[in-house]
């Protein structure tokens, strides 16, 4: 078993954009395993938080700490974006790309990519250009690409936004399987139903601040903060 890069610890992480504070200061710790769902209304800082954790955003203050040296930490993570980034390649080549980056030969990488693609249900589209895929298929491709290097931590930013029920169910199945295989998932969603179905832990944000952090079951049964309670009721938070 590879040494774990978790837990992930955030200390007073703060993010500014155009002179405005859009996140933080946030302090929290995410232990290994399970699915952590970042919830909160639009503009509450969910995406910024995920990007800051993954290192896509330069933070203005505070610290993001993993255990282990930087190289290994970076190689143990993957990120799935809300709108999948398609490379101008065939599906199998898109999925194989991270392996190629790690120096694997083209043949071996494509073989593994084809397997992974088949696992997520893209067996019939492997040799098509990625951009002919439907919305759900694109996100499956992005998932396969994210999972191909067996990351310890998988970030997902609203992975099922704009997807229909069928595609959402497929994706949730893949995510559950990944969790069961030991991957730590950190995802954002504004879909309360999805959060209920998947969350082992919940991190609730409002206005860039961490409002509540709880186990999934207890959060949905009895949220401690007024904001979370209102949000779960369906009230608009201002």
């Amino acid at each position: 078993m590879v040494a774990t890069v978790l837990p992930l610890t955030l200390e007073e992480v703060t993010l500014h954009r155009n002179g405005r504070c859009i996140l933080g200061p946030v302090s929290l710790e995410i232990p290994g395993g399970g699915i952590t769902v970042v919830m909160g209304p639009n503009g509450s800082g969910k995406t910024s938080l995920l990007r800051a954790m993954h290192g896509l955003e330069r933070i203005n203050a505070g610290q993001v700490r993993w255990s282990g040296e930087t190289e290994r930490v970076r190689a143990s993570q993957a990120f799935v974006f809300q709108s999948p980034i398609l490379m101008r390649r065939t599906v199998v080549d898109c999925i194989a790309y991270p392996l190629r980056l790690s120096g694997m030969g083209r043949g071996a990488a494509r073989t593994l990519a084809a397997q992974k693609g088949a696992e997520v249900g893209l067996a019939d589209s492997l040799n098509q250009p990625a951009h002919v895929l439907s919305g759900g298929e694109r996100q499956k491709m992005a998932l396969a690409r994210a999972l191909i290097r067996d990351p310890q931590v998988l970030f997902l930013d609203e992975p099922c936004a704009n997807l229909d029920g069928r595609a959402t169910l497929d994706i949730e199945t893949i995510l559950t399987e990944a969790r069961n295989a030991g991957t730590t998932l950190i995802m954002s969603t504004h879909d309360i139903g999805q959060a209920r179905r998947l969350a082992d832990r919940v991190v609730f944000l409002h206005d860039g601040k961490l409002v509540e952090e709880a186990r999934g079951a207890s959060f949905f049964a009895a949220p401690k903060s007024a904001e979370a309670a209102a949000y779960l009721r369906g009230d608009l938070l201002t």
């Binding site: 896509l56 974006f81 980056l101």
Partner: peptide, 8 residues
């Protein structure tokens, strides 16, 4: 975003 995320 993808290329930075993949640590290229």
């Amino acid at each position: 975003d993808l290329l930075i995320s993949l640590h290229t």
